[in-house]
């Protein structure tokens, strides 16, 4: 027990490394705040383009979605972070990470919005068009608001995954929470910072997990 506490819950180490972890936490939060809205906007765009009458464009979108869903995000991230500099495009780590996340998450959010839009009955389009609303107006004021509402649990669930996924940015040395924790560990030779990072994730995301679990049971019970 004693060893466990010294190894994992060492308050002295925690106090010493807290500033690192705090900086890492802020970076993770910033990354989340950039990556989630971008992904949602991209996903919405993907879902809307997937509905255009122009077939080649639709195929292109399906290809885009499947392509980036097939890539493990870490592979995509490494490819961008290590590969792009060879093209002469030396992006800052934060930008590479944001780009990789955009490609990955917009595919997932896109699938969610697509399903949401498909769940809206045809009558809603027809009613809107019959009052003279244009195609874009119908989407903006009638279809997308309803579609979004129908897929809120899926959006939250995916957002939870995205927030967790930001931890892979540590692999390309973006100083977010996990990276800071590992640095702190290698300096102190103590695992407390890593455990602390795990606990920080747990504390921040647990409410979301509870909320989702409630949603999921209710949603299925409605069938």
């Amino acid at each position: 027990m004693e060893t466990l506490i010294t190894a994992f819950f060492n308050l002295g180490i925690l106090r010493e490394t807290a500033p690192y972890l705090w900086a890492g936490f802020k970076m993770s939060a910033l990354l989340t705040l950039v990556v989630v809205p971008l992904g949602i906007a991209g996903g919405l765009a993907v879902a809307l383009i997937a509905r255009t009458a122009f077939r080649p464009l639709r195929w292109l979108v399906v290809f885009y979605v499947d392509f980036f869903r097939a890539f493990p995000p870490l592979v995509l991230l490494m490819f961008i972070a290590f590969g792009l500099p060879f093209t002469g495009l030396d992006l800052p780590a934060f930008v590479s990470v944001a780009l990789a996340f955009f490609l990955n998450t917009s595919s997932y959010y896109g699938e969610i919005f697509r399903a949401g839009i498909e769940s809206i009955p045809r009558g809603q389009f027809e009613a809107a068009r019959s009052t003279g609303l244009g195609a874009a107006q119908t989407m903006a004021y009638v279809i997308v608001p309803q579609a979004t509402r129908n897929v809120i649990p899926d959006l939250i669930s995916n957002t939870l995954e995205v927030v967790k996924l930001t931890s892979i940015a540590s692999v390309v040395a973006l100083p977010e929470l996990l990276y800071a924790a590992r640095q702190a560990q290698s300096i102190t030779y103590n695992a407390t910072p890593i455990i602390a990072a795990g606990i920080i994730y747990l504390v921040c995301l647990w409410p979301l997990v509870r909320l989702l679990s409630r949603f999921e049971h209710r949603q299925i019970a409605l069938h």
């Binding site: 009955p121 009558g123 809603q124 027809e126 009613a127 809107a128 068009r129 019959s130 009052t131 003279g132 609303l133 244009g134 009638v142 608001p145 309803q146 509402r149």
Partner: peptide
């Protein structure tokens, strides 16, 4: 066509009100 449609009111069997 949108200007035309606005001059033609349509009422559907299934109402099609916007639920939101």
């Amino acid at each position: 066509i949108n200007a035309v449609r606005r001059r033609i009111g349509m009422v559907f069997q299934s109402f099609n009100l916007y639920p939101h």
